[in-house]
Design a protein around this nucleic acid. Structure first.
Lengths: 217, 217
DNA sequence: AACTTTCTGGACCATATAGTCCACAGATGT
DNA sequence: ACATCTGTGGACTATATGGTCCAGAAAGTT
């Protein structure tokens, strides 16, 4: 979809400028509330440039923005996102998420909002966004899985379900930050999600001595 | 906003027909993906009727749909929603929610999706939708509050936060039903929310399974 | 310098869509 | 029966917006 054409440094810079400004505008006003003219005005570019860098038109541009925002959002959760192996890591992740979305220029999640809006209107881009969401969820699931493998979570926990519930709480919290114009719902949602995760905490200290003695006896 | 003009039975029926059909179309394709012509075609009406019953145009119509869907959604959660005083009621509520959204023609929540889309583009209607969301959340909070008053939840639980986290989980689950085209995320989300709520269960009777780590005294 | 390629500006087009208007049908009340 | 009000049809308008096109500037390549 994106261009296979060559980009000079200047061109790349312009393209980046467009994506960033458009991403901002879309976060604030949604895809439907963002016209190509808005973007043109906000970036001091011309119509032809928009179609030069995004031959597929608005759809193409929105897809680029989705990719851009996806990267940005995942990056904000690092390094915790990659190593959700301990309770401390989850705690760090939680704080990073709250800090990131609290410092954004507008409430809500660029990816979540995009997903919700596009699923109803643009199936093609929507699939792409859904893929980003899946990847994101995958990181959480990987963490839960490793927590379980390490004996921190009960053996009968289902990592997929657990990760899904945390992911859902996260996005619900983010959705509500929009309607309530406050960070509170996100904080409450993650607090709840962490509580639910702790509910599956393995019985205290599966220490070697205890396991050993039992098997010996 | 709505008409103060008189409506004959015939008129009321037409108006209702428009609202219902439009609500459906909007649930499927979003506000941006629904033109007045779509609605006209889907209801066998004419342009003039749309403006006759909704003088404010599309905005007015969307507001009416929000109200309609809000009622419908709350109704689907009854009678549990009004009496979330026991663990059984919450369980019943959970099942009712899953059943309702599982039987809808399309994934997602009409109110949540509307809120997400409109906040970015139409502040006026968005406020109205946010009010419906608040009312909805209020029911959950009232339930949690009564649970606590009845001694079913610990005294140091914060009903507002707890209800908010459940509400967030619910809407996150609903958002993900859209991206994943499955009821699973909603089920997982509510499962998690219930687990988080149970984490605040008052230790009235030590009839717990095998959790000896927490309450000793 | 000559030449090619990329970048940029903005006029222009096509059309989708919200919204207006008016004529007429069909009730309803007196 | 008459007058009046509500309901309905559909042509018409205005405009916002996505998209095209081409000429020319800037950069880079030989």
């Amino acid at each position: 979809m994106s261009s296979t054409t060559k980009l000079t440094p200047k061109g790349a810079a312009t393209r980046a400028r467009i994506v960033e400004a458009a991403a901002d505008h879309i976060l604030a006003h949604g895809v439907g509330g963002t016209s190509l003219d808005d973007i043109r005005a906000g970036t001091a570019t011309s119509k032809s440039q928009l179609f030069h860098y995004f031959p597929g038109g608005k759809t193409d541009l929105v897809a680029a923005i989705a990719s851009f925002q996806s990267e940005r959002v995942l990056e904000a959760q690092r390094p915790f996102l990659d190593t959700l192996d301990t309770w401390e890591a989850w705690e760090g992740w939680r704080k990073a998420v709250v800090a990131h979305y609290g410092s954004q220029a507008h409430w809500g999640c660029p990816i979540g909002a995009l997903a919700s809006e596009l699923i109803a209107s643009d199936p093609a881009v929507s699939d792409e966004v859904a893929a980003y969401m899946d990847r994101w969820r995958g990181y959480l699931q990987a963490g839960v899985t490793r927590m379980q493998a390490a004996g921190l979570l009960r053996a009968d926990a289902v990592p997929e379900t657990l990760a899904l519930s945390i992911f859902a709480a996260l996005h619900g919290g983010l959705l509500l930050t929009q309607t309530m114009q406050s960070i509170e719902p996100l904080e409450a949602a993650l607090e709840g999600a962490m509580a639910a995760l702790h509910a599956w905490q393995a019985p205290t200290r599966p220490s070697l001595s205890e396991v050993g003695s039992e098997s010996l006896a």
